[in-house]
């Protein structure tokens, strides 16, 4: 196909371009959807009985806040990763908050070790936590995975990994409001660990999920291949 014919074919099919909104605006929209879902979930299941006492604990509030900020920054980073020309450092934005979140859980583990010794750090198999994280994250995961397809698949694995981290982190934060589990090592292994596991799965699935989708052009030489 000649270049002139290609240009004519593209011009025939052109539609008004709707520019993507700023990544932060898209992330805020997604957070609103996530909050509504989690609020509904907490209302349906019922908040934990000691929620008022827990919200008065600074460590609990810091943990929730760190998880929420991890989620927000991961969502922004995922949307930034789909915009060509944006700085690379934006993809690392959620990790400081992830570190704070991990530090609060680690501090809790240390406290339990000081109080109860090694017995305070034992944990048992609790797949309910994994299922609860999945339930608390599924809707926002589906929404963000659809939204990231609107961007350019420049870094598929980073984009899907960050998107999955965003969904599971906010799910973990919401989980703390209705799932009364306060053993730090259990939270660290089963909730935080589930977040990391699901984010890793999302990361590894990136290349299969996000691919370049080039417009089909009719006409021209049958043997000419559109290489994009």
């Amino acid at each position: 196909m000649r270049t002139e014919d290609l240009i004519d074919a593209l011009a025939d099919k052109v539609e008004p371009v709707e520019p993507l909104r700023h990544p932060a605006a898209r992330a805020m929209g997604w957070m609103i959807v996530s909050f509504v879902y989690l609020a509904g979930l907490v209302w349906l299941i019922g908040p934990r009985a000691d929620i008022a006492d827990k919200l008065a604990e600074p460590r609990f509030v810091i943990e929730i806040a760190a998880a929420l900020l991890t989620s927000l920054m991961a969502a922004i980073a995922a949307f930034c990763a789909g915009c060509p020309g944006r700085p690379l450092w934006e993809r690392f934005a959620p990790f400081p908050f992830l570190a704070v979140w991990l530090a609060t859980l680690g501090e809790g583990c240390w406290r339990q070790w000081v109080q109860s010794g090694p017995d305070g750090l034992t944990f048992n198999i609790d797949l309910d936590c994994f299922q609860a994280i999945f339930l608390a994250s599924i809707l926002q995961a589906l929404v963000i995975l659809v939204m990231i397809r609107q961007g350019a698949p420049l870094a598929p694995m980073s984009t899907t990994g960050l998107a999955t981290l965003a969904a599971t982190a906010i799910g973990a934060a919401g989980l703390r409001l209705f799932h009364a589990l306060d053993v730090s090592v259990m939270i660290l292994v089963w909730q935080f660990g589930s977040v990391l596991l699901l984010a890793t799965i999302g990361f590894l699935a990136g290349n299969r999920y996000l691919k370049w989708s080039l417009p089909k052009i009719d006409g021209g030489d049958s043997g000419h291949r559109q290489t994009g």
Partner: peptide, 28 residues
């Protein structure tokens, strides 16, 4: 064609060359 398919990701408030070069480098 790749540039055409993701033209909606261009932010007019930002410079065009980094946007264009990022797409080109990735496709190469």
């Amino acid at each position: 064609m790749s540039v055409h398919s993701v033209r909606h990701t261009f932010d007019p408030s930002r410079p065009i060359m980094p946007w264009l070069m990022t797409i080109t480098a990735r496709r190469i």
